[in-house]
Amino acid sequence: MSKILVVAEHDDGNVKKATLTTLNMARQLAEKRGASIDIAVVGSGVGGVAEALAGYGAETIHVADHADLAYPLASSWAKVIADIASAADADVIASSASTTGKDIMPRVAARLEAGMASDVVGVVDTDDGVGFRRPMWAGALLADVVIDSDVWVVTARGSAFDAAAATGGESAIDAFAAEPNLAASRTRFIRFDGTQSDRPTLDEADIVVAGGRGLKSADGFNQVVEPLADSLGAAIGASRAAVDDGFCPNDYQIGQTGKVVAPQLYFAVAISGAIQHLAGMKNSKVIVAINTRDDEPIHKIADYTLVGDAFSVIPELCEKIAAVKSGS
């Protein structure tokens, strides 16, 4: 029988939402292929992660806990994930299309001589059997792809799947004797400079406020985007131009080459709406564009367009949102 191995993503011992969205893709695939699901938890000191995932319907949770796996370096993690897949006899290995998944999973595919579909947004039936739908050309087209090899590797786009709910039942938790190749991999971790923020993360937020080059400077960006995000409990995002010009950190970038989000509500403030930006947000439920112009590409997909200067419109908007929230 077919078996899908889902690679868990975690942070400081907590299960990330990306694990649950991948799990949901795996459930859709399992239904079509009559497959069972196992989970791989890789890292150092990750017993708690395995326990937290025990009620999600996986048969077995394989825990590779090793000091050399403390940081997700591609070569050693890929080896361990491929080793788990082989030992468990999994024929599909799935993770999220986060930067970690993108970095590691092709190496898993190479180790297992598996074909790989990246960044999938759906599991589909094709004339050639079960396949995956994935965006190409910055989402201008969607492709249905099939994989002809015995083993498949897939990364799932988080924004395209709901988080899987717990199903009850208990998974078996199996300690896997990991043999990472850290020393032989000629790779060393030097430093991580994380973006500090008390706001929700972009992939987990219901509301996203994104700012663009029209905000002119880091000060302008903060002055406009922060109060609006605060009034809504929103995550902050940005266009590439805003990141390139140093208004905000790199991991705020939304788009073809940044993060892909699909919140309930998306504010595009002073963003023109280049195809590469739209690729990262056009599946948001409701889109509001705030722009001095009314003829930009963003307006072709926005549900509501407010024409005006962000510097004067946003303070008024924040005030009136606060009034709505306080019920006056």
Binding site: G115, L142, A143, I147, D148, A302, Y304, L317
Partner: peptide, 28 residues
């Protein structure tokens, strides 16, 4: 031989332009 094959391309579901609101009050 390649292992991954595109069997079909589609246009994504389109999204149509919404409305232009007159001011902040109407947006709210």
């Amino acid at each position: 031989e390649p292992k991954v094959r595109v069997v079909k391309l589609h246009e994504p579901a389109g999204r149509s332009a919404g409305v232009v609101v007159a001011d902040v009050d109407e947006l709210i």
